[in-house]
Amino acid sequence: MHIITHACTQCGTVVSANELESNRVMKCPGLGCENVLRFTDLDQADQEHFLDNKASYEL
């Protein structure tokens, strides 16, 4: 499985694509970090791959 994650550019906290996609826009879960993370922060190719294979990223 191609595992897609995004690392916050401000604090390094890593968030998986399924988490980003289910929230679309979220406050970074890093401690004290105010950065906003979006599913669209992922590479275009990763976004497409995730959406094309969404079922396999759900339990």
């Binding site: 994650t5 906290t13 988490e19 879960p29 890093g30």
Partner: peptide
């Protein structure tokens, strides 16, 4: 410590895979 949010529990290998960039 760096936090890594796996979200859906898709297995231990998925958890490990989420740590790749770290």
């Amino acid at each position: 410590i760096t936090y890594i949010v796996q979200g859906n529990p898709l297995g231990l290998a998925h958890a490990a895979g989420c740590a790749k960039d770290f």
